[in-house]
Amino acid sequence: MTAPGFDAITSSDLFFDDEHHMLRAQLRRFVEEEIKPHADAWEDQGHTPRDLLRRMGELGFFGIRYPQEYGGSEMDQRATVVLAEELGRSTYAGVAITALVHTDMASVHIFNAGNEAQKAKYLPGVIAGETITAVGITEPDAGSDVKGIRTTARRMGDHYVLNGAKTFITNGVLGDVYCIAAKTDPQGPPSQSVTMFIVEKGMEGFTVSRSLKKHGWNSSDTAELSFVDVRVPAENVLGQEGRGFYEIMKNFQNERLVLGAMAMGEAQAAIEMTVDYVKTRRAFGAPLWDKQVIRNRLAALAARVEAGRALIYATAARAARGEEVVREVSMIKALCGELVNAVMYACVQFHGGMGYMRESAIERLARDARVQAIGGGATEVMLEEVAKRM
């Protein structure tokens, strides 16, 4: 099915060019042929299979923003938005977030802060889908408040000794390489004491302490990580010691743009399937679509989704030109995280009892959407970021 408004917006030259249109068409075919027929099983097993991730690497989806020398295609933030939106439209947000954490929330730390040796070592496998990445920032007492990190890394000769724990880590169970934030100067100013490290699975003292069960995103694996006297080579420092806070903040802008685009893809899919449902579901002698209150509410939500997408597209275009977009990205995260939940609430309502059944795609979408107002920056934190810039 063609998404309402899809042709009108994305066929224009305002935000996208032919390369982006080709990527969107390729992704849409991939979702229909290689995700949707199998993803119910992945929901049950609790993770997205490595075969699918390797396939995405083979098709070039993991390298769209990376240089050709590592196997990438050197596209810009607009391509990231296309990737996130189309994976969101799949209706399997667990699959989407598995891929997007790898491409736009974890491996980007290696690309942005890594030296040439680190990039050459890791990025080819990342882009091929052979090396899956995760990022470890969140702790029991530190989520949006990055300065509250308690994991420590103490320099000892040519190694750092890492101790602490991370939680809510997507790709935490099945990942291969982890970008971990730790304090290298626990007594120093919070913004100057955090350092990012590359930690590989198998390092002694590094364990996945628990696989977590979630309200949604069931086809993504989520874990608690434990670090007990893990000896991390000094050559695995990402960027400069003590500059990790700024690297994290820098990438949050990309992460929040991605999550906003993913949310609008989910919202678009929900509206499409609900319109189809109410046009065929009969009640009181006529299709539900004949009820003006239902038509009007869906139309209003569709307008809000189009507005959210337009803000995302415009912001991605500005980011691609190198402009400062912290304010706009914070708006996107707050707006779209709340909007996708408003869309899901209405769409479940219009599905009636079927919308509450686990066999219904709209029920899965509603569960998966809830975290969009929390992860990557809670709505309340994002609104404060906007307010600071008003």
Rank of each mutant, 00 (worst) to 15 (best):
Glu130Pro: 10
Pro49Gly: 00
Val95Glu: 00
Gly71Ala: 07
Gln68Asp: 12
Val95Asp: 00
Asp104Leu: 13
Gly57Leu: 04
Met56Ala: 13
Ile110Arg: 00
Leu52Ile: 09
Ser90Met: 07
Asn112His: 15
Thr80Leu: 13
Arg55Phe: 00
Glu116Ile: 15
Glu86Arg: 06
Gly125Lys: 03
Lys121Val: 10
Ala117Arg: 06
Ile97Gly: 00
Glu58Asn: 11
Asn112Cys: 11
Met56Leu: 14
Thr80Lys: 12
Glu74Arg: 09
Asp104Arg: 09
Arg54Tyr: 02
Ala113His: 07
Arg55Gly: 00
Gly72Cys: 09
Gly88Cys: 13
Leu87Ile: 06
Gly114Met: 11
Leu59Val: 02
Met56Thr: 08
Asp104Lys: 06
Ala113Asp: 13
Glu85Gln: 14
Arg65Tyr: 07
Leu53Thr: 05
Glu74Asp: 15
Glu69Arg: 15
Ile127Met: 09
Phe111Asn: 11
His109Arg: 09
Met75Ala: 06
Gly71Glu: 07
Val108Ile: 15
Pro124Cys: 12
Gly72Thr: 14
Ala128Gly: 06
Gln118Ile: 12
Gly71Ile: 10
Glu85Met: 11
Arg54Trp: 00
Leu59Met: 13
Ala93Asn: 09
Thr98Asp: 05
Gly63Tyr: 05
Arg54Asp: 05
Ala113Tyr: 08
Ala84Gly: 09
Val126His: 11
Val101Lys: 01
Leu59Ser: 07
Arg78Pro: 03
